[in-house]
Structure formats: structure tokens, C-alpha cells
Design a binder for these strands. Structure first.
Lengths: 173, 173
DNA sequence: CAAATGTTTCAGTTTATACTGAACGATCAG
DNA sequence: CTGATCGTTCAGTATAAACTGAAACATTTG
């Protein structure tokens, strides 16, 4: 049972580069590295192993595992006759990225739209016609995007289906 | 001509909250605040004003303006008989977000796909069937997404058109 | 060409964020 | 009940990113 650095060098490269990318995805470095570790590991892993393999503290590992579980991209599992917590990656890839997408919409998109609508309703732009117009255009664009995203992310099955549909029709346009 | 804090409080609220969101969009705080300032301003503004209004240094303002210009979301303009550089927001809202989307795909998505393909071609997962399978599934999902995104972002006009199309067909599915 | 004005660069500093590890709480076995 | 094991929390610290401001650079004008 490996619990030192990763067996394959390709795998450890993956963990590291996925880690740097993570920042752009709304995860921090440790969360992204941990997630990557789970992506390239078959067996359930426990907290201590995660900390040891990735050279991070148990505290940090604990917090990241919790957060990844909140995102729903890893799951807690148990081995019979062993009270330790083990974790595995969510097995369904679509589910994983569906959840990441939902989370990102909630964090990045929705507040922006809300913000925009707030500004339009509160602000007085009677002496700034260009601004007024631009904000209205933005609101329209964001509303459209919102409709589309909401439809794609309404539920997992719908999203999966829509994705297939899109693949077929879009390239032709 | 205002060059102190923003005239409208709604506008200044907008600038600040857009600023905190910016981080999630791949911009830093100052870039996002500056961008927001341009969004709610009709008149061309020059570097000095930006620095003064937002209480940031000229150096920082200069770097952010440069970067925003690289992203293509603001433009440099000139007033006749005045050699100072003025800047305005890109007037077309779709163009603005199209460019942000292109940039984000390039930064966030493409490296992830590349990474994944690299791992699949280099790594040996003969003793990790689950991992092998999961990575292949991920590659397929990312490839599909890539096709769709590429089609949406092929060029501005196509994207605009596709967005309208999507809005009409998706909600029904 | 010198002076004036506007712009960019970058070393040093500040600030924000992530991370550590010791202390605590919970759960279980004996 | 007691000791042992495991998980979590959080105050303090380390790290990374952003920002400042002064100096260098560029451009225009007289």
C-alpha cells in the first residue's frame, strides 16, 4: 500500500499541475491537489494518507476534505470493522463537473447579475445615457446567459442530455 | 468634472462589489474596480483620474489599464489637441464578455484538457482500471465541452448568433 | 536640444490568503 | 471509567499576490 509520494511520475505531475489550475477554478491549491489525487487513485484513502502523500498538515487536509465533500466531488466511505473515514472520488465524471459548474455559477455568475440589477434599480443615470444603455445591454445579456445556464444546470440528467444535443447541433451553425 | 470619489453612491457600491467579484473572474481587485468604473462612466477617463477616483497608485493603474487593454475590454482614445491618453469601456457589451470568455477558456479550460490528454498518453494505469476509466470519461466530457465552447467562441458574430439560438431551444428541452 | 509632461517599470512593502500544528472534542475498546 | 485513536478547530505563521512610489523612459513642444 503506497503512502509515500505517488507511484507514477505522470500521476504526480498531474496532481501538481491540476493544483496550480485549481486556483482558476475557485479551489485553493491544496483542495485541487487533493481532488487530483483522488482522481488518479482507485482505492479509498484516509486523511492521514492524504496529508502524508501530499506533504500537507492534517489540519489542512481535514478542512479541504470537508470542503470537497461540500462540493460533492468526493465521498466518504467506510470499511467494515474499521472506524476510520475513507474517501473516494465521485465515480461519475459528469456528476463531478456538473457540481463544480453549479457551484461556480452560484459564486461567480449569480452575484454579478444580482449586482447589475441592483445598480439598475437604485442608480440614477439620467445624465449618463451611454452608461444607462450599456447597463441595460449587460442586464439583457446576463439574463439570457442565466436562462441558458439555468436550463443546463436544472438537474443532472437534463444537463447531460442538453450537452449531447448541443454537441450535435452547434458545430453546424 | 468629477475626479473625487464617485458621484452616485449606487455607482460606487457597484465598483466595489464588482471588484470583489473580479477575483472569481480571473481579474485582480484593482482591474475589476477599474473596469467597473469604466462601465458606469460616459466620458473618457485618463490614468490620473482613475488613480485618484479609486485611491490607487498611478503605477498600479497603469499596469491594470494595460492589462484591461490586452483583454480588449477597454480602449484607448484621444482628444484632439491633448496628448494625454484617455480610456473608455468597449462600447459593445457582447464584445466585452465575448473577450472575457475567450480569455477564460484559454486560461482555465485549455490547460486542463491538455493536462488530461498528457496524463492519458504518458501514464500507465494498467493496474488502476477505475482511474483509467475515469480519466477516459473525463477526456471525453472535456472534448465535448471543448467542441461546444470552440463553436460558441469561434468568432463574435457566430457566438452572438448561437446565444440567441440557445435561448430559443434550450428551455424547452 | 532642453524642459515639460505623460507613461511604464520594478524593487520593496503591504495585504490577503492559505497552511500549520498544537489543543480540543468525540468515539470506541478494554 | 480510562486510555487510545481519529477528526476538527483555530490562533498564529508562512507564502503568494497585489500594490506603492520613485526612478527611468518616451514623447512632445518651444
Amino acid at each position: 500500500m503506497s503512502s509515500g509520494p505517488l507511484t507514477s511520475s505522470a500521476a504526480s505531475q498531474f496532481v501538481e499541475s491540476w493544483g496550480s489550475l485549481g486556483v482558476l477554478w475557485g479551489l485553493n491549491r491544496s483542495m485541487a491537489r487533493i481532488h487530483a489525487l483522488f482522481l488518479v487513485t482507485d482505492e479509498p484513502i484516509e486523511l492521514d494518507q492524504v496529508a502524508r502523500i501530499l506533504n500537507i498538515s492534517r489540519g489542512n487536509a481535514s478542512m479541504c476534505l470537508k470542503e470537497l465533500r461540500n462540493w460533492g466531488v468526493i465521498q466518504r466511505v467506510h470499511k467494515t470493522g474499521d472506524r476510520q473515514d475513507y474517501y473516494v472520488a465521485e465515480p461519475d465524471v459528469w456528476t463531478t463537473f456538473y457540481r463544480i459548474a453549479v457551484e461556480r455559477k452560484k459564486r461567480e455568475f449569480d452575484p454579478a447579475l444580482h449586482n447589475l440589477r441592483h445598480l439598475l434599480s437604485e442608480g440614477d443615470f439620467s445624465d449618463s445615457p451611454k452608461t444607462q444603455q450599456r447597463l441595460e445591454d449587460m442586464e439583457e445579456l446576463f439574463s439570457t446567459a442565466n436562462t441558458i445556464l439555468a436550463s443546463l444546470l436544472a438537474n443532472e440528467a437534463a444537463g447531460r442530455k442538453a450537452l449531447g444535443l448541443l454537441k450535435r447541433i452547434l458545430p453546424k451553425s
